[in-house]
């Protein structure tokens, strides 16, 4: 009965309990008629289920059909040692990868050196440009100041004479 032993009783029927659990069930069964009755019902049910399929036999041609299908498609059977093929492929790819990898690294390395050289030249050139520009502007500023000064000097005597 539900509320009594449930799946423990069911497992007892199937002989799936340890000694301790078995003893506990047997002690309960001594005094519980409903669990005893349930056990009997289950046992009878089990026999009935077994009986349904007792004489059920697979059709004889199953075997022939299965073997014929297998004969038609032998390529589908992958032997375990064939697993070596993907392994070899992976190995080849890795070896190829490593060799081309080192080549690639060398390639990148020389490229980097070239780039650094270009960068160095470029910065050097660029750093020279402001210097030229600065010198030119400073020079032109001096020339401008000088010309303004000389210009003012040229007009000054006239104004002083007036004042």
């Amino acid at each position: 009965m539900i509320g009594h032993l449930n799946d423990q009783l069911s497992a007892y029927l199937d002989d799936e309990l340890n000694e301790e659990e078995k003893k506990a069930i047997e002690a309960h069964l001594e005094s519980c008629e409903s669990c005893q009755a349930l056990l009997d019902v289950w046992l009878a049910m089990q026999e009935q289920v077994k009986d349904i399929f007792q004489f059920a036999q697979a059709p004889a041609h199953i075997e022939a059909n299965v073997m014929a299908t297998i004969e038609r498609n032998p390529q589908l059977f992958v032997r375990k040692r064939w697993f070596a093929i993907p392994l070899i492929v992976i190995l080849l790819i890795s070896v190829f990868g490593i060799t081309t990898g080192t080549m690639f690294v060398k390639f990148i390395h020389s490229f980097t050196r070239l780039f650094v050289a270009i960068l160095y030249m470029a910065t050097h050139f660029l750093s020279n440009v402001p210097f030229v520009a600065l010198s030119v502007s400073v020079l032109s500023l001096i020339v401008l100041t000088a010309s303004i000064y000389s210009l003012r000097k040229a007009f000054q005597p006239a104004s002083m004479e007036r004042g």
């Binding site: 059920a56 075997e63 299965v66 073997m67 297998i70 032997r79």
Partner: peptide
């Protein structure tokens, strides 16, 4: 059968076809 021996596999089918069929039928 694991090594691909078809004769051995045919034997396995013979040995297991009834229980397999019974289970599928159930």
């Amino acid at each position: 059968a694991k090594r691909g021996d078809k004769e051995a596999y045919a034997q396995l089918v013979k040995d297991f076809k009834d229980p397999v069929y019974r289970y599928a039928l159930g």
